[in-house]
Every structure is written in C-alpha cells, then in structure tokens.
Design a protein around this nucleic acid. Structure first.
Length: 392
DNA sequence: TCATCCCGCCAGACG
DNA sequence: CGTCTGGCGGGATGA
C-alpha cells in the first residue's frame, strides 16, 4: 500500500505545495478576530469556529485559550464561549498587573532577573484564568482546593502561561524580552538549579504559539534586540489606542506592516506532501460530492488571487476563510457594540452544531466543511445577497 | 545551521 | 463509555 489511489491528477495545478505561513496560529487568530469582532456576535461555538476558519478543532483551542486569558473571550459552557471583545481587555490587563505585582513579577529587571516566585505553584491561587465578572467570586477564595491537586495540569496551561507572559511586561520595566528569557523566568525557576525540570525548551515552544496570537492582536510586536540581534518581543499593549476611552479598542487599524507570520490562512494542505483532499474514507462520498469539491476549489483559487493582490489585514473582507469566500460580512469594522434589539442571531452556529454530527474523521469533517461553505457561497451568489444568516 | 512552530497523538476532564 | 480539552514534543519548514 504505497500510496493512496488518489494521485490521479486532481488538485495539482493550482494548489501550492504547502506553506507553513498560511497555517500559522497568528493568521488563524487574525481571521478569528475578524470573523467575530463584529458588533453582533455574542457567543462562539468551537465547532462553528473551526468550520468557518477551516481548521481542526485543536487549533481553535489554542486560540481561544489565549484570547480568554486576555479577556477577549469567556468560557460559557462546553463548546461555547462568549465574546467579550477588546473592551474587556483593559480590565483584564489591570487585574493581571495587580496579580503580577502581588506575585513578584516585578522582580524582573531589564538586566537581571531574579526569577519570579514562579507561577501559581502549589494550589494557593488556582484561579481559572482570570476571575470572571459574572461569577460571584468574592475575595475569600479560601475555598479549599476544590479541584486543584490533580489539576497541576492547569498550571501548565497555555492560558496561564499567556497571563504570566503578559504579566512580565505589565509588571516590570522591561521593554524587550526574548522568548528564551521569558521561558526561563516564567517557569524555569532558577531557584533550585539542581532541578532544572521544566524543560524550558518545551516552554519556549508554547511561547511561540502565544507570541503569535498576541502579535496578531498587536499586543506585542516582534523585533530584534538592538545589539544582540536576537529576536525579541516588545509590549505594545493598548498604546496608541484610546485606552480607557470607550470600552473598545478595535483591532488596531493602523496598517502596520504585517504581524510576524501573517499570511493567508489554511488551505487544506497537510504538511506531508500532496495527499489528496479526500482519502480512502471517502467511499461514502458520491460523485456529486466530489464534483462539488472540485468546483469549490476553483472558486477558492480565484478568491485567493484577488486577495493576494491587496493588503490582507483585518478588514473582514480580505482574509481567507478556509476554502471559500467569506459569508459576506459587512466591513463595519466593529462599530461599537450596538446593543440594538438584541437580535438573537444564532446564525449558523447553533444550526451547524445542531445538525452536524461529530466527525472524528478528518476527511469527513473536511467534506462537511466544504459542503457548508460551498452552499453558503452559492447561496449568496444566487440570491445576490446574504444567504440566510443575520437578519437585518 | 538554527529559529520557528504546525500537527495531531493521546491522556485527563467531563458528562 | 463517548466527547471535549488541551498538554506535549517530533520533526518539517523557513531564514
């Protein structure tokens, strides 16, 4: 069984071999934000997000975790997050700062760091990623370790790491910091050289992920150390933006060059060679389906081209939504949270998650995605206007 | 070569 | 038990 029966010819001409940049977390995050940073989004379904962005669920977790740790999102329930928007960031940041100061995150100096008391070691704090606002959480957290203990897993969570990383900037006077340093400080407690557990290298890998999404939000920026030449990150925070002003600082609109590794996102190519979009498991799929896919791919390419021509920054119109054209989103650039008539816009979310079985098979899932997207775009084409979606 | 970091296995948490 | 989450690190890609 050398190679799958595919190889026939299919998608060979127009698809790129594989471009890592198109799959970066940062880009995905950018798209994620563009997709949901519209005034009327209230809840976000993980499945829906994965579907719309054309990525595996796993990636959504990554993004959602760091976004939540900064206050842009809040977990509502399984599979469901509520959109807080950037308006909640300042507040969260403030909390982090206080927390950080309390935890000696300020012991870090530009030149010499004294290692921070290490994140929530033990279970003394065990705050599940920033205390929520809705959760009646008095200061008396004396509440025993309800579930900690075995939750030492949380101590290594992406979310916590993100918060600590941010604290580093918020609580000290450092302006530039490399990920290696951050990793060392964050969990690489220097206190106890005899036990360098904490494989700092592993930490760095996580920090790369975090840095990517933080970059895509322009909270930080990648640069180089003046002399060292080493890559390092600088905190941008909400500078330049109307801090405190109204509770919103859109996703910077300033056209900075391009954040770190930004590019268009996900096209369905795996890292490993060509692999047809569909694999053996497609025996359930009919011809029609395949044709549909082919057609869609063409469509996709067209979109790609036109998009490549322009600066694909945050405007919700110029970025890649998975394989197909976006669901006609008005480029309202997040016009404040118009409270308007609540509009129970459940749009596709509930619909999709309700009717879609949980595919454990990537191939099938991809197909489903194609279906939905294709249908949507066709719909809009035929109807000449928005498919179903949002009411006016 | 070294820096970056995507991919997806698989183990806990949860229902 | 099936799902949902999300550590974790192998190894590919990029500079």
């Amino acid at each position: 069984m050398a190679l799958p029966p595919s190889a026939s010819n299919e998608s060979g001409s127009a698809n790129f071999p594989y471009c890592r940049k198109q799959k970066s977390l940062g880009l995905l995050c950018t798209n994620f934000l563009s997709l949901y940073n519209q005034g009327n989004v209230e809840t976000i379904g993980l499945d829906d997000a994965a579907t719309r962005l054309g990525v595996e669920r796993r990636r959504i977790y990554d993004i959602v975790n760091v976004l939540e740790s900064v206050g842009v999102l809040a977990r509502k329930a399984k599979n469901r997050y509520s959109w807080k928007g950037f308006g909640g960031v300042p507040k969260t940041l403030q909390q982090l700062r206080e927390e950080g100061l309390r935890e000696n995150f300020n012991t870090f100096n530009g030149n010499n760091y004294v290692k921070v008391s290490d994140d929530d070691e033990d279970e003394k704090i065990s705050n599940p990623i920033t205390s929520q606002n809705d959760k009646p959480n008095p200061s008396s957290v004396t509440k025993s370790s309800t579930a900690s203990k075995t939750d030492n897993r949380k101590e290594k969570s992406l979310g916590l790491l993100t918060q600590n990383f941010v604290k580093l900037f918020l609580c000290s006077n450092v302006d530039l910091i490399s990920l290696e340093e951050a990793a060392k400080i964050l969990l690489g407690d220097a206190h106890d050289p005899s036990m360098m557990r904490n494989n700092s290298a592993a930490k760095v890998r996580r920090l790369y992920d975090i840095a990517n999404v933080l970059s895509s939000m322009n909270f930080i920026e990648k640069t180089h150390h003046p002399k060292t030449r080493k890559p390092a990150f600088r905190w941008l925070g909400t500078r330049g933006k109307s801090d405190n002003g109204s509770a919103n600082t859109s996703v910077l609109n300033e056209s900075k060059k391009r954040i770190f590794g930004t590019e268009i996102t996900n096209t369905s190519f795996k890292r490993t060679k060509v692999v047809s979009t569909i694999d053996e498991n497609s025996n359930q799929i009919t011809k029609t389906h395949l044709q549909m896919l082919v057609k869609c791919e063409d469509l996709e390419n067209e979109v790609d081209k036109s998009n490549f021509e322009q600066d694909l920054r945050h405007s919700s119109k110029n970025f890649q939504f998975g394989p197909f054209a976006p669901v006609t989103v008005s480029v309202s650039k997040f016009g404040a949270t118009q409270n308007s008539t609540v509009k129970q816009v459940h749009d596709w979310e509930s619909l999709a998650s309700t009717y879609r079985p949980q595919y454990h098979n990537q191939a099938l899932r991809d197909l489903f995605v194609h279906y939905v997207e294709a249908w949507k775009s066709w719909c809009s084409e035929v109807a000449g206007k928005n498919p179903i979606q949002l009411i006016s």
